[in-house]
Amino acid sequence: MQVLLVIGRTFLMYGLVLVVMRTMGKRELGQLSPFDLVVAVMIAELAAIPLEQVDAPLLPGMIAILTLAGLEILLARTSLAGIAARRIISGRPSLIIARGKLVEEEMRRLNYNLDDLLAQLRRKGHFGPAEVEWAVLECSGDLSIIPVGNQRPVVTGDLGVATGDERLPRAIILDGELDREALTAAGLTREQLLDQVKRKGAKDIRGVLFAGTDRQGELYVQLKARRRH
Rank of each mutant, 00 (worst) to 15 (best):
Met1Thr: 13
Met1Cys: 09
Leu5Met: 11
Val6Lys: 13
Gly15Val: 08
Leu16Phe: 05
Val17Ser: 06
Val17Phe: 04
Val20Glu: 00
Met21Pro: 04
Met21Phe: 12
Arg22Met: 04
Thr23Val: 12
Thr23Pro: 01
Pro34Gln: 10
Ala40Ile: 11
Ala44Gly: 15
Ala44Cys: 14
Glu45Trp: 13
Ala47Leu: 09
Ala47His: 11
Ala47Glu: 08
Ala48Met: 12
Pro50Tyr: 11
Pro50Phe: 12
Leu51Pro: 03
Gln53Asn: 15
Gln53Val: 12
Asp55Gly: 12
Ala56His: 14
Pro57Ser: 04
Pro57Gly: 05
Leu59Ser: 13
Leu59Ala: 15
Pro60Leu: 07
Gly61Ala: 12
Ile63Met: 13
Ala64Arg: 04
Ala64Lys: 07
Thr67Ala: 15
Thr67Asn: 06
Gly70Thr: 04
Glu72Ser: 12
Glu72Arg: 13
Ile73His: 10
Leu74Trp: 02
Ala76His: 12
Ala76Pro: 03
Ile83Pro: 02
Ala85Lys: 11
Arg86Pro: 01
Arg87Gln: 09
Ile88Gly: 02
Ile89Ala: 02
Ser90Thr: 09
Gly91Trp: 03
Arg92Lys: 09
Arg92Asp: 09
Pro93Phe: 01
Leu95Cys: 00
Lys101Leu: 02
Leu102Pro: 00
Val103Gly: 02
Glu104Asp: 13
Glu105Asn: 10
Glu105Asp: 13
Met107Ile: 04
Arg108Val: 05
Leu110Pro: 00
Asn111Lys: 06
Asn111Arg: 14
Asn113Val: 03
Leu118Thr: 02
Arg122Val: 02
Arg122Tyr: 01
Arg123Tyr: 01
Lys124Phe: 00
Lys124Cys: 06
Gly125Val: 01
His126Lys: 06
Gly128Pro: 08
Glu133Thr: 03
Ala135Cys: 08
Ala135Gly: 08
Leu137Phe: 09
Glu138Arg: 03
Cys139Met: 07
Cys139Val: 13
Ser140His: 10
Gly141Asp: 02
Asp142Arg: 11
Ile145Leu: 02
Pro147Cys: 04
Val148Glu: 11
Gly149Glu: 12
Asn150Ala: 06
Gln151Lys: 11
Arg152Met: 04
Arg152Ala: 05
Val154Tyr: 03
Val154Ala: 07
Val155Asn: 06
Gly157Leu: 09
Gly157Asn: 09
Asp158Phe: 14
Leu159Trp: 14
Gly160Asn: 04
Ala162Asp: 12
Ala162Asn: 10
Gly164Cys: 06
Glu166Val: 14
Arg167Ile: 02
Pro169Asn: 09
Arg170Ile: 01
Ala171Tyr: 08
Ile172Phe: 08
Ile173Glu: 12
Leu174Glu: 11
Glu177Trp: 00
Glu177Leu: 06
Asp179Tyr: 03
Arg180Gly: 00
Glu181Trp: 04
Ala182Met: 04
Leu183Gln: 05
Ala185Lys: 14
Ala186Pro: 00
Leu188His: 08
Leu188Thr: 08
Thr189Lys: 08
Arg190Asn: 12
Arg190Phe: 07
Glu191Leu: 05
Glu191His: 11
Leu194Gln: 10
Leu194Ile: 03
Asp195Phe: 14
Asp195Asn: 09
Arg199His: 14
Arg199Phe: 12
Asp204Gly: 11
Asp204Val: 05
Ile205His: 13
Ile205Asn: 09
Val208Trp: 03
Leu209Ile: 07
Ala211Cys: 11
Ala211Leu: 13
Arg215His: 13
Arg215Ile: 14
Glu218Met: 09
Glu218Phe: 08
Tyr220Gln: 09
Tyr220Lys: 06
Tyr220Val: 07
Leu223Ile: 07
Arg226Met: 11
Arg226Lys: 14
